[in-house]
Amino acid sequence: MLKKALHRIALGAERLLDRVPPRRNRSGADLVIDPHIGYSTAEHVIVRGRVLRGLRGSTARHEQGVLRNVWQMVSLFLTDEVAGVTVAHGRATAVTDDEGYFQLLLPVGRPPGWHDIKVTIANGGTASACPVFVPRPDARFLVISDIDDTVLHTSAYSLLRNLWTTFSGNALTRRIYPDSAALLQSLSENGRNPVFYVSSSPWNMHGFLTQVFSQAGLVRGPMFLRDLGLSETQFISAGHGSHKGSSVDALLKAHPTLPAVLVGDTGQKDASIYRDAVQRHPGRVSAVLLKVPQNGLDADDRHDLKQLRASGVHVFPASSFEGAVQQLNLWLPPP
Rank of each mutant, 00 (worst) to 15 (best):
I144G: 08
F316Y: 15
Q64K: 08
P282W: 07
P222E: 09
Y101A: 11
G217R: 10
D34G: 02
A182L: 14
A13E: 13
L230V: 11
D300R: 08
V263A: 06
E14D: 13
V119I: 12
Y274R: 05
F77R: 08
A29S: 13
D148I: 09
G100S: 14
D227E: 15
F213G: 00
L11G: 03
D34C: 08
L163A: 15
P178L: 15
L258A: 04
L152M: 10
V278E: 01
S155G: 11
P35T: 08
G323R: 11
N295D: 15
I37F: 06
N193S: 07
R174A: 09
A318N: 09
P131A: 05
P21T: 10
W203L: 10
V45N: 11
P22H: 09
T233E: 13
V74L: 13
M223Y: 13
I176V: 15
G267L: 11
P333I: 04
V66W: 13
S186A: 14
G283A: 06
G241M: 08
T257G: 04
I46K: 04
L252E: 02
L251K: 01
Q294A: 15
A271P: 00
S319H: 14
H255A: 14
D249K: 11
R50F: 13
A156G: 11
H243C: 07
R24Y: 14
R226P: 00
L305P: 05
L328T: 03
V285E: 04
P259L: 06
P194R: 01
P135T: 07
H153F: 12
D304P: 05
E81D: 14
K306H: 14
R284A: 07
L297F: 09
D116L: 14
H7V: 07
H240L: 14
H243I: 07
G84V: 09
L225F: 10
V219T: 13
L106R: 05
Q326P: 02
Y197G: 02
G84P: 03
G229I: 12
Y177P: 01
L52A: 04
L251R: 02
F133N: 03
R26H: 07
K269H: 10
T166L: 11
A181P: 04
L308D: 00
V288H: 00
P22N: 13
S246W: 03
L11E: 06
G239T: 15
T120N: 07
S75M: 09
R161G: 13
A310D: 13
L230G: 00
G245T: 04
V285F: 07
